[in-house]
């Protein structure tokens, strides 16, 4: 059983997984097959190893320098995509025309903390030229695009605590256009939150980088794959089935329940957001 799947964690962390009956799908609902799902939990030591070798692409290892300047969340994102591709046996598959949407949470704090200290002590020359390209919000999606030669659209989402929920809305929007053969939706964040220890180059307490990758493909009823359904409508009253959406809850759910089950979670700011992952072949 993966970490986080104990009885105690499951009850506390997983949101209620309820029947598909939904009260808030009045506007267009997007449903698409999930061709592949991957999750990853990496502590500090594992991140060091993954930075040197996050996996393979097209059967070959990455250059050890590929992620040299990357943020830890970028490292986890590349690794979880590599693992998902390996798990699906897609080593020879081309993702050339796919899109990439990546939603890191509180991205770049480690790099920003180090940069801030150096700027205060050394002035302008203390800022690394790698700071902006690799610690800005677009960096995770841009790196994945570069890693797998993905030439479709790539961009970052949010960067804030609500990043995962925003990413589902955006991914659904992109898939609904029906002009991409597939879309990588990649979510990352630290659990517990990464709080840097001043001047120490490490967090104040041990923390784990979580990552989830979903390979979404346009609707194809004959595919027989688990599917993701996303809808969005403003609700003006509390829904007892909704609860706060989080990356931790999603990763726990994917690891504990696999592809089956349903989630109905609430987006920050009062907009309700329903998503469901259902294994249609098992129904």
């Amino acid at each position: 059983m993966p970490d986080g799947c104990s009885e105690d964690n499951g009850a506390e962390r997983n949101p209620p997984l309820i029947a598909t009956q939904s009260s808030s799908f009045a506007a267009a609902t997007v449903k698409c097959p999930i061709a592949g799902i991957g999750t990853l939990r990496a502590d500090a030591d594992q991140l060091v190893k993954l930075r040197r070798q996050p996996g393979v692409r097209a059967g070959k290892p990455f250059s050890p320098a590929f992620l040299k300047h990357a943020d830890d969340q970028t490292v986890a994102a590349v690794a979880v995509v590599a693992q998902t591709i390996a798990k699906q046996g897609w080593d020879d598959r081309s993702f050339r025309d796919w899109g990439v949407v990546a939603a890191p949470i509180l991205f770049g704090r480690f790099g920003n903390e180090a940069a801030l200290r150096r700027f205060v002590s050394e002035g302008a020359w203390g800022i690394s030229p790698h700071m902006i390209p690799h610690h800005s919000l677009h960096a995770v999606a841009g790196t994945i695009s570069q890693a797998w030669q993905i030439h479709g659209p790539n961009f970052g989402i949010s960067g804030g605590p609500g990043a995962a929920a925003e990413a589902f809305l955006v991914a659904a929007t992109m898939v609904s256009e029906n002009n991409l053969p597939g879309l990588w939706l990649v979510l990352t964040g630290f659990d517990p939150e990464y709080i840097p220890e001043k001047g120490a180059g490490k967090p104040t307490q041990p923390t784990t980088c979580l990552a989830a990758a979903l390979a979404l493909t346009p609707d194809n009823p004959s595919a027989g794959l688990p599917s993701l359904r996303v809808g969005c409508e403003t609700q003006h009253q509390d829904d007892p089935h909704s609860s706060d959406f989080s990356l931790r809850a999603l990763v726990n759910h994917l690891e504990c329940k696999g592809n089956d089950g349903h989630g109905q979670w609430r987006m920050p700011g009062g907009v309700d957001f329903d998503w469901q992952i259902e294994a249609e072949t098992q129904r």
């Binding site: 970052g156 989402i157 804030g160 605590p161 700011g269």
Partner: peptide
């Protein structure tokens, strides 16, 4: 800790009392 903080798009949405969804995108 900043997990409780809103991002600028949601602060804007709340201050302007907008009822639709809000997301921020970065490319």
């Amino acid at each position: 800790p900043q997990q409780h903080l809103e991002s600028v798009v949601h602060r804007t949405r709340r201050r302007l009392q907008l009822s639709g969804p809000g997301v921020s995108v970065s490319a």
